[in-house]
Design a protein around this nucleic acid. Structure first.
Ligand SMILES: NC(=O)c1ccc[n+]([C@@H]2O[C@H](COP(=O)([O-])OP(=O)(O)OC[C@H]3O[C@@H](n4cnc5c(N)ncnc54)[C@H](O)[C@@H]3O)[C@@H](O)[C@H]2O)c1
Ligand SMILES: NC(=O)c1ccc[n+]([C@@H]2O[C@H](COP(=O)([O-])OP(=O)(O)OC[C@H]3O[C@@H](n4cnc5c(N)ncnc54)[C@H](O)[C@@H]3O)[C@@H](O)[C@H]2O)c1
Lengths: 214, 214
DNA sequence: TCATTTTTGTTAAATGTTTCACAATCTTCA
DNA sequence: TGAAGATTGTGAAACATTTAACAAAAATGA
């Protein structure tokens, strides 16, 4: 699969495309043009055509794209045709919200276990997912686990990540503000809500100032 | 303030710089070089110097940066020297986690009110924040509110955003997967955890394939 | 005091991303 | 069947971001 030359920016848009196509298929739309699709996802139609072109000719000139076919193609590309199992570390406020949500809706990903140090949380079941004691993490066989969701306090994020790596995990979705220092073959994505909120406030205030001085 | 020419990419890194400096100041570190700072935040030192240079000469040659001074500068730039009030719409699983967290730690932002349609949630207080009925949103005076955090089910995100706009709100942090269609003077940032998780799975699988074929 | 070392700020080059422009080609419908 | 219309796929241009290179200036220590 010609995956090496897919730009990062393109790859990061694919999940949005996939989800949007799922919705379009669900409401019975069988074809769509890049410009109509673009207005739905709010991305320029040229960008969308370029993105799809990295995977070959997926559309038909004069017609557009077959939603079902495109959706199924993206499903494969995104490995959504097989179940991805993930674990969650830190069953606190945010962790519990994620366990309740569990990404199941049209999304072939499942949080199969949670871990926590707090004895009052260990043994509980949150929305069908068991909370295990943290010390079991290192001994558990996590070779079939794709990634770990990190929702521990930031002071413990580094050690928790290291324990997960010891058990065979190579990917993290880190919700804590800590920038983890990890081996090069480990891939981390950050979801940093405080950064997002501050960036929002920055852009709001600065665009207001611009408007005032116009 | 020369804000118009600050690149978007730079602006989005400022909150991370700010938080990191807060921590450095807290542990008593008074000076830092761009390369040491870079290794902490995992960003190339040249990028960091370039970022700061958009705001003038903040460092000293042969010395580095004064952490306190730099932190206070960023505090102003990010409007963290004044309290930003935000509201939260949708006090469900995720909304409750955010209310409990409330961004208070070293962060001059406060969720002052929450709104929900569910009568069983209205009237409650979550971590000191009252949940108001949704129909009050339009009549409430929200002129001192900077932004709204949207944590409603995706089918209701558009209508909830429109009600918030009617009450005077111009900025949103949208946690629902819906791409909102809103007036041009409204600014929206997306925090899309499903997209992040799928992107993580994509990059993990594709980089594994690359390694195999090397 | 002064030579050496450190480190910034910045210009220029390299790289990555988006947008433009349009030929190629398929669809549609008379 | 063929003309008119729609829409893709893609080179090239424009734009944005990162990285390299290094002169200038300050700090440091003998
Ligand atoms: N809650 C939010 O809305 C929110 C918003 C922004 C950022 N965050 C970040 O997300 C992370 C989690 O936030 P939260 O509000 O859920 O915190 P929390 O305190 O409610 O939950 C943390 C959980 O991690 C567990 N834990 C602590 N140390 C651990 C360890 N070493 N190994 C395993 N488990 C451990 C605790 O027992 C607790 O259950 C934090 O880093 C926080 O900064 C949360
Ligand atoms: N929980 C998660 O971890 C998670 C993860 C990824 C994405 N999300 C997204 O975040 C959003 C919220 O998720 P959640 O798990 O908290 O859902 P939830 O169902 O637990 O909470 C939604 C809340 O919104 C309220 N609500 C419904 N319609 C409303 C309206 N019109 N106006 C005001 N309030 C309304 C409900 O009463 C409920 O309290 C969803 O869009 C979901 O897709 C959540």
């Amino acid at each position: 699969m010609a995956s090496q030359k897919v730009p990062q920016a393109t790859a990061e848009r694919l999940p949005l495309y996939y989800r949007t196509l799922q919705r379009l298929v669900a409401i019975g739309k069988t074809r769509i043009s890049s410009s109509e699709f673009g207005s739905i996802v709010q991305i320029d139609s040229t960008t969308i055509r370029k993105d799809f072109s990295y995977f070959g000719a997926l559309g038909r000139k004069g017609y557009g794209y077959d939603t079902q076919r495109l959706m199924e193609f993206l499903k494969k590309i995104l490995y959504q045709d097989e179940l991805s199992k993930v674990i969650l570390i830190g069953a606190g406020h945010l962790g519990t919200a994620l366990l309740n949500h569990n990404f199941q809706k049209n999304n072939n990903t499942k949080i199969v276990r949670a871990y926590d140090v707090d004895p009052s949380k260990v043994g509980k079941e949150i929305s069908g997912t068991e909370v295990h004691p943290m010390n079991e993490l290192v001994t558990d066989d996590n070779s079939d686990i794709t990634a770990a969701i990190l929702t521990v306090p930031s002071a413990h994020a580094q050690e928790a990540a290291e324990m997960a790596i010891a058990s065979g995990i190579h990917g993290f979705l880190n919700f804590s503000p800590t920038r983890l220092v990890l081996p090069a073959d480990v891939y981390v994505r950050h979801v940093d809500m405080t950064v997002e909120l501050q960036a929002l406030i920055y852009f709001l205030n600065h665009s207001m100032e611009e408007r005032k001085s116009e």
